[in-house]
């Protein structure tokens, strides 16, 4: 690849664009569909129900401990499909790049995306690149869309319509890692901490859970707004309530430390590799065991249950034995974290 930085011409559609596509994107993503260089990819999709999702990534900084914007762009979209019960298959990726962006950095991001896609077993089949004038976007923004196939048996998982009192709520590990990593790495805050983002594609963990045959009632990835937001979505307007045991929710020491320092509540801090799931009581232990065996579920825990009381509301039993309500995040706790 000639040159060291992105020029406006790399987004022109001409010679430079073609070079960039060939020598960065196709080189790393390396799928048959991309190599054909057609205007749209033709996909072979088995089954009847299709899951489709899209997400844009604008995280700042673009490289952080535990990942980069490219890892987020693949893991985030894969997870959105997987938590709906779908098997992710194909991903599109669009880049908006600021003029002057180092090509070496772009290549690092693209290589990470290719690597994550391979791990997740998805193919990047189409994409687009636009370059904007210096100062018109901050370094690089990525949009990814994803398609997956959904087994009709899992159709209820996205909405949680089969949740009943007595069901158990689980999480696959510690909360707040991503949000506090980003916070600690922002230039304007001089905090150094031994933490990294939890950003990871969770589709294999999820398929291992589903393969147990357990009655999985609900899954959602707890990204922006933290687990408090998912737990509020899980209870608001429903005819059951939730009870969460604060002490059972794993939080890393460093994350707690930064939260204490800056006045954040870890329940509201973003994650990029955490799912909240609800399973039937009789299956909870079995699911927990399977989760703990996966590399992204080692610290999995049962954190609460669905109850018939206080419908529409979630209560947290605090570590000291008191209780408080769970509510959604209002406004931005921390802008541009994903």
């Amino acid at each position: 690849m000639k040159g060291k930085q992105i020029l406006l011409g790399h987004g022109s559609g001409g010679q430079l664009s073609h070079e960039l596509i060939k020598e960065v994107f196709v080189k790393h993503f390396n799928t048959e569909e991309l190599k054909l260089q057609t205007d749209s990819a033709i996909l072979n999709i088995p089954g009847e129900l299709i899951s489709f999702t899209t997400d844009s990534y604008v995280v700042n900084p673009i490289f952080f401990s535990g990942g980069n914007i490219g890892k987020l762009a693949i893991a985030g979209t894969v997870n959105d499909l997987a938590v709906s019960g779908a098997k992710p298959l194909y991903i599109s990726s669009s880049f908006i790049i600021e003029e002057g962006f180092p090509i070496a950095d772009l290549e690092k991001i693209v290589a990470t995306m290719a690597d994550e896609a391979r791990k997740a077993g998805v193919k990047i089949v189409t994409g687009d690149t636009k370059v904007v004038d210096r100062g018109k976007c901050d370094k690089i923004f990525i949009n990814t869309s994803g398609i997956g196939v959904l087994n009709p048996e899992y159709k209820h998982i996205g909405t949680g319509e089969k949740i009943t009192p007595g069901d158990i709520i689980l999480i696959n590990g510690s909360i707040g890692d991503h949000g506090m990593t980003i916070m600690a790495e922002r230039n304007d805050l001089n905090i150094s901490a031994q933490i990294g983002s939890d950003c990871a594609p969770l589709n294999h963990l999820i398929s291992e859970i589903l393969e147990t045959g357990a009655k999985v009632r609900f899954m959602r990835d707890a990204t922006r707004g933290g687990i408090a937001t998912v737990l509020t979505e899980l209870s608001e307007g429903r005819n059951y309530g939730l009870e969460i045991d604060e002490e059972a929710v794993p939080v890393k020491e460093a994350v707690r430390g930064i939260c204490e320092l800056l006045g954040f509540d870890p329940f509201y801090v973003a994650n990029e590799g955490k799912i909240i799931l609800v399973v039937a009581k009789e299956d909870a232990e079995k699911v927990l065991e399977v989760m703990k065996k996966n590399e992204f579920g080692k610290e999995s825990a049962i954190i609460g249950k669905i109850v018939g009381e206080h419908p529409g509301k979630g209560w947290i039993h605090t570590g000291i034995g008191g209780k408080r309500i769970i509510d959604m995040l209002s406004g931005e706790q921390l802008p541009r974290i994903c």
């Binding site: 605090t318 570590g319 000291i320």
Partner: peptide
Amino acid sequence: IQKFGIPAL
């Protein structure tokens, strides 16, 4: 007081 749920105690 609210965060730790002290009134309930």
